[in-house]
Nucleic acid binder design. Structure first.
Lengths: 343, 343
DNA sequence: TTTTTCATTTCAATCGGTTGCGCTGATTTT
DNA sequence: AAAATCAGCGCAACCGATTGAAATGAAAAA
């Protein structure tokens, strides 16, 4: 970068014409003679001229960059979302700038500001688990930046959202366990401040109700962190407390894996003593022993849907059209595997 | 974005001063009176003024953005590298722009140009498997953009590189198998056009030689795609051809898992009939049955090292100092697990 | 009173590309 | 031959922030 870049002015100087002519020649403006166009194109190719997007963005107030903030990246779901977003963005001529909040609200705030500063044309975000602070998001929305939330969304914000059908997925998972003959189904629930966690819990509750199984609040155990160790230690606690159970529906696959590992270590057989089902369908969940049943949430679909929604809004606003934010629900699917199927 | 942003000029107008004064006031330039500074800071805070990075970048010929191009993102190794890069970049005030080449050279070329157009201050890249075309990389280097290659590097390019000690890792893996008593070790090798694959093969060969085991070229089977299905089908072929073997060292974990699954399906016991070891240590490899032995390649370390190297070069060139590209080798470690340990 | 000095502030160019408008000279119309 | 038309190109402002140099005005020195 330090060295001077090769600019339109340079082309202009070499050819003894003005840079406006160069600019128009490069985009085949009808005002420019064919001779001039040819000369300009030839030189531009020779010198491998590449336009400076910064200058363009500044001029047009438009960067052709979409921002995306995810809590983690070493995570199949988010990685899939990103690849879905990229696919759509590429096809529409946009680039993607990614920030990782690392599940930290402070980082999320910094990232949001950075995104605004670099004038992304729109922002996609899945929030950190920990916080309820929305001021930074409100602020960026007020400044007119189109925002789409996905997966971990907040109802309070009037923006477009893309979510999986958490309720339905949890309902299917629970129903599946019930149909396998399970009566005492533990739910390892997610953080209560995220709709996602609440919806999954509600799906679980609804299935129990529909099948006339009494709800025992002690069987709903919060696992807000949702990592392997939490799943493990929670399962140890459950077993130590001699809570009677024959199935576990976890808020996510990692927690389910932790619980499964702990149960196996304690000598319980899966799925015969305990059926286990997760949520999210990790790429490798099918390779476990036994393979983990799960609710498939297509990260790619969510990414694609969210990116399209965002671009729709960006374009509407560019044309000064009204755009009413909406929420799209991406279907989830029950994946039955060995961890929950009784022989 | 469409709506006018709140700029320094706006602050200047409201306060009846010039924008240069606003600029200096915001950065506490000594020339500006305290009263003016206070007024400017107050208004800036009130209106939530955020500087336009595009304008800054254009002015300073410096974007504070590092670009990174990876072949895949739904991949623990690359995701870890990215998170390592992000960590370093954040601390140094840089943002990260990510592109995914999807193992396609054309995409890689497009991405490289896009990165240059948005004037990243430096570029990190791990190449696609398929190609040997380096012209786009040469071109960006010629334009003065610092470039660091990691993991999948090319010797032909005189730039900094960060690699794992593939030779040593492969040697350790092979040695480990030999020490477990294995005599007929199959190597599922990687693509030959990448140094990474060649080095691993050489490590395997060196270990065999050191332990006086004859090399059988038929036991070295290329798996250039390196995906699950290739691992599986290759293993089926091997078994069908009745090749005698008691161990498999695969170029990566996914291939190893594919081979392991296929072997299990064919009724072979792991590790008793066949010992298996992979390369790369996937996050979930330890959760398999049996857990997969592997050579740990710390993606995070590679990302951190590569980012630091890139920043070092960027800074040197900013100060017009010379910088000689160098190659850093990140250690790899043998992780022994159930898939290779004989009882 | 005139000249210096100094603290503040403004002016204007700059980064690279875009674009409305005006200018030039040649060709066509009347 | 004078007027109108038009192709082709250049001028200059603009996007938002920075920065060296010049300007302003008031207080201090001569």
């Amino acid at each position: 970068m330090r060295k001077g870049q090769y600019t339109m002015q340079d082309i202009a100087n070499e050819l003894g014409i003005s840079k406006s002519t160069v600019s128009r020649a490069l985009k085949n403006h009808p005002d420019i003679s064919q001779d001039t166009k040819d000369a300009v194109h030839k030189l531009a190719k020779e010198k491998d001229y590449q336009p400076n997007s910064l200058a363009l963005s500044l001029r047009h107030n438009k960067s052709f960059v979409l921002g995306i903030i995810v809590p983690e990246i070493v995570h199949d779901f988010f990685a899939n979302v990103i690849s879905g977003v990229q696919k759509v963005a590429y096809n529409e001529g946009y680039n993607v700038m990614i920030c990782i909040s690392n599940e930290s609200t402070e980082q999320e705030i910094v990232d949001t500001k950075a995104m605004f500063s670099s004038r992304v044309d729109g922002l996609l975000i899945s929030r950190t688990k920990e916080s309820n602070d929305l001021s930074h998001l409100k602020s960026i929305v007020n400044k007119g930046v189109p925002l789409v939330m996905f997966d971990r969304v907040s109802e309070e914000l009037n923006v477009s959202k893309v979510i999986t059908d958490d309720f339905q997925g949890a309902y299917m998972a629970t129903e599946h366990l019930i149909k396998q003959g399970c009566k005492n189904i533990i739910h390892l629930s997610g953080p209560d401040n995220l709709a996602i966690g609440r919806n999954r819990k509600n799906g679980y509750l609804a299935a129990l109700k529909d099948y006339n199984i009494a709800v025992d609040e002690n069987m709903i155990i919060p696992c807000p962190k949702g990592d392997l160790d939490e799943g493990k230690s929670t399962m140890y606690d459950i077993i130590d407390q001699k809570i009677e159970f024959d199935a576990v529906f976890a808020n996510n696959d990692v927690t389910a894996i932790g619980a499964m590992n702990a149960a196996k270590e304690k000598g319980l057989s899966i799925p015969n003593d305990v059926s286990v089902i997760g949520f999210g369908d990790w790429r490798l969940s099918q390779l476990l022993d036994p393979p983990l049943s799960s609710i498939e949430q297509s990260g790619v679909d969510i990414g694609v849907t969210a990116a399209k929604l965002l671009l729709e809004q960006i374009r509407a606003e560019e044309k000064d059209e009204d755009f009413t934010p909406r929420t799209e629900v991406v279907e989830s699917h029950l994946i039955k595997r060995g961890s929950s199927i009784h022989n």
